[in-house]
């Protein structure tokens, strides 16, 4: 198990009911962690509609997670 800091924005923040949490997980990748959290919290957005960011940089879903990583799941963006 490792400890991962997860931040939520926009729709995900509302569906989770908080902006940030620390989770203990056995997930090996960003994809596995989203799938795990989606089941636990009932997130409506499928992973295909999101991007992942690890330690404040875009990362592939297959990126391996390390103890203490900071993860953000990015909903479809809509700036401007």
């Amino acid at each position: 198990m490792k400890t991962i800091r997860v931040q939520y924005f926009a729709l995900l923040r509302e569906e989770r009911g908080l902006a940030e949490e620390t989770v203990a997980t056995a997930a090996a990748t960003a994809a596995e962690l989203y799938d795990e959290l989606r089941v636990r919290h009932g997130f409506t957005l499928p992973r295909e509609r999101l991007r992942a960011a690890v330690n404040e940089e875009f990362a592939p879903w297959t990126a391996g997670l390390k103890e203490g990583d900071a993860l953000v799941f990015l909903p479809p963006v809509a700036g401007g």
């Binding site: 924005f9 926009a10 729709l11 953000v72 990015l74 909903p75 963006v77 809509a78 700036g79 401007g80």
Partner: peptide
């Protein structure tokens, strides 16, 4: 750029744009 926009409408409803 990771920016999100929520529209608040005159009828009281809201939507996250693009979702």
């Amino acid at each position: 750029v990771p920016i999100w926009k929520r529209e608040h409408y005159a009828d009281g409803t809201t939507v996250w744009v693009g979702v």
